[in-house]
Simulated scan of single mutants.
Amino acid sequence: MSCFPCFSSRKAGSKKDDHVPVARARDISSSTPPVHNNKNSPVADANNKAEGYAAEEGSNTAKTFTFRELATATKNFRQECLLGEGGIGRVFKGHFHQVVRQLDRSKTQGNREFQVEVLMLSLLRHPNLVTLFGYCADGDQRLLVYEYLPSGSLKDHLFDIPEDKRPLDWSARMKIASGIAQGLEYLHEKANPPIIYRDLKSSNVMLDEMNNPKLSEYGLAKIMQSGNKMNISPRVMSAYGYCAPEYERHGELTLKSDVYSFGVVLLELITGRRAFDAARPTEEQILVSWAQPFFRDPKKVSDMADPLLGNEFPLKSLNQAVGVASMCLQEEPSVRPLINDVVAALSFLAMAPPEEPIPSSSYSYIIIRS
């Protein structure tokens, strides 16, 4: 297979980037005491398991919240504070730029196991991850507290855009794709043990006021399991259209499953189409299936671009982005690139200077062969 050029720039066994430390979660409120770190506590277990993580000097462990505190912050979980609802629980807007996820109590682990897993996640720190502030494990209640990003999700900025808002331009889309890949790389390469996201989709990618992406709800799948058995199906954890074929069919889950889901999100950024859209004709409803003929025909690649871009994008950049997506969406997991190679390719595209808009009469494309 003649590989996409940027994929040859880094080897699978390359040294991991040591510039981004993993930090313990900060105590965001001095009014409630943090969990005490005695040798028999879940915090101690989490700290022992997290050996090898880089810790920010002087940082504290995850903040514990009482159920009463979170009920007050969400106005007793009123509908007006509800941000969303899914198969694993509801999400509410709380005070002081907090998001409160109320997990389905029937699907979570026991108190001790839950605290250990949450405290492990609270050690993760990266610019492209939504910060997990703390948790509540009062009785049988299981809640997580994250930072709140008022700009909403990538889904909000790609689909059903209000008339008073401009669609994302090509440069912003490539920077978002690069940031998502860097967040995944951190989970795959820096976390020890590596974390498989499992649920990468545009609605789980939050954007800040500068359109920098942050992955949300990473690690939830492990919290929502009992022993070694998942309490929820792959369809719940990976929305239809984003799920890798091997996960969809056999429940086989690897880091390459995340790479596939990333390829779907990258296609959404390129095309402005949803991963699955029941409102479209049958042959166009599944984005990956719709895109396959374009991958094989270089002359039609420009037709994949989101019409909202108005042909204002560099043709070379489009070709290369489609090449990256094509590699990520290979049927066989072993053929898909490692996420660090994807980061290398997209970092180049995100930093590339603008070129002339696509000429209507010329085409070029990078062929991906197996």
Rank of each mutant, 00 (worst) to 15 (best):
I195W: 03
N228F: 09
S171P: 00
N212R: 13
D199N: 07
A239F: 02
A275H: 00
N204Q: 13
L207Q: 09
I223K: 11
W170P: 01
L184I: 06
P281S: 07
E209K: 13
Y186E: 02
P213Q: 07
L200T: 02
R173N: 12
N211G: 04
S216T: 14
K229F: 08
P245A: 11
T271K: 09
S171A: 14
L187C: 02
G272Q: 10
F159W: 03
V265H: 08
L255H: 10
S203A: 12
N204A: 12
A279K: 14
L269S: 08
M210H: 13
M210C: 07
P162Y: 09
Q285P: 06
P194L: 07
R280I: 01
P194R: 01
E248R: 14
R249C: 12
T282L: 14
N228G: 12
L187A: 01
P194A: 06
L266G: 11
E163A: 15
L168W: 02
E189W: 00
P162E: 09
L215H: 02
Y247K: 03
D297Q: 13
E209S: 15
Y218E: 12
N212F: 06
F295D: 10
L220M: 07
S171K: 13
V264E: 12
D169R: 03
L269G: 03
Y186C: 10
A244P: 06
S203T: 10
M230E: 15
Q292V: 14
E185P: 03
I180L: 04
K214I: 07
A172D: 13
A181Y: 04
P213F: 07
D277C: 10
L207V: 08
R166D: 14
M224A: 07
D208F: 03
C243N: 08
I223D: 04
A239R: 14
D164C: 10
N192R: 11
F294S: 11
L269N: 05
D164R: 10
P281H: 09
C243F: 00
S238Q: 10
L207R: 05
